[in-house]
């Protein structure tokens, strides 16, 4: 840690690296100690990307909120949403996020078995979520509730479909990560990619919280 004087004047070390006897160790991002490590730079950059992705989702949420009542005589929310199915989807995605957390713990302990099993569980639960969502879409289309029917349905399919697309891409990424972790082991580059993947997966779960609350729970009320 730092000297007693440094601790008292800056208990949380917000200006870390300003202590005379601490210059060589705690100066990350503050010049003399050199730039932050690649892991920090990559993780922070990916965090910025995720926030921009959430801004993208916010535009779709806004479109849905504005158009939610523009049903043009077609089916409305309470007529097409099934709460039990959404509850199952939510639990799938939540458990998937949990398994993803277990995978990053496994990777931290450099345990190939734990990591692979957790990632496989993450992928299976994510695939189950996607399958339920696709069956819902197919059912709606069969009932004539297609994206072209009304502005409400356009915005619904755009928002939920965009989330589903992210999950699909996440599953492809997950498969790639399992193969890379298996073949290349826990190299620094692989660890960075695993970190980014887990951030991506957890962020998708956060977006889904918004989707099931705003679209399904609020939308299924008369």
């Amino acid at each position: 840690m730092s000297s007693a004087a440094g601790t008292s004047s800056d208990p949380h070390r917000l200006g870390h690296g300003r202590n005379e006897d601490d210059n060589q160790r705690d100066t990350t991002g503050h010049g003399q100690g050199g730039p932050a490590s690649k892991r920090i730079v990559v993780g922070y950059g990916f965090w910025i990307y995720l926030l921009s992705d959430i801004v993208l989702f916010s535009a779709f949420f806004a479109a849905y909120a504005v158009l939610a009542h523009a049903t043009a005589g077609g089916p409305s929310g309470p007529q097409i949403f099934t709460r039990t199915r959404v509850a199952v989807e939510t639990v799938c995605l939540l458990l998937s996020s949990y398994c993803c957390g277990l995978a990053s713990l496994g990777a931290e302990r450099r345990s190939q078995l734990t990591t692979q099993l957790s990632l496989a569980a993450t992928g299976l639960l994510g695939a189950a979520f996607l399958a339920i969502e696709l069956s819902e879409f197919a059912e709606l289309m069969a009932r004539g509730a297609t994206p072209t029917r009304s502005a409400f349905l356009s915005s619904f399919f755009a928002l939920v479909g965009l989330h589903g697309l992210h999950v699909t891409i996440g599953l492809l990424w997950l498969g790639t990560m399992m193969a890379q972790t298996w073949v290349k082991g826990f190299r620094p580059a692989i660890m960075r990619r695993l970190l980014c993947f887990s951030l991506f997966w957890h962020a998708l779960d956060i977006v889904w919280v918004g989707v099931f609350s705003i679209v399904y729970l609020l939308g299924s009320r008369a």
């Binding site: 070390r13 690296g17 160790r25 503050h30 932050a36 892991r39 993780g43 965090w47 277990l102 951030l199």
Partner: peptide, 20 residues
């Protein structure tokens, strides 16, 4: 590769905050 005192990234946590 993990040791980088003074900064953390999301998903990593401080001092082993990521636990079962």
């Amino acid at each position: 590769y993990k040791k980088d005192s003074g900064d953390t990234v999301p998903g990593e946590g401080e001092d082993g905050a990521a636990s079962l």
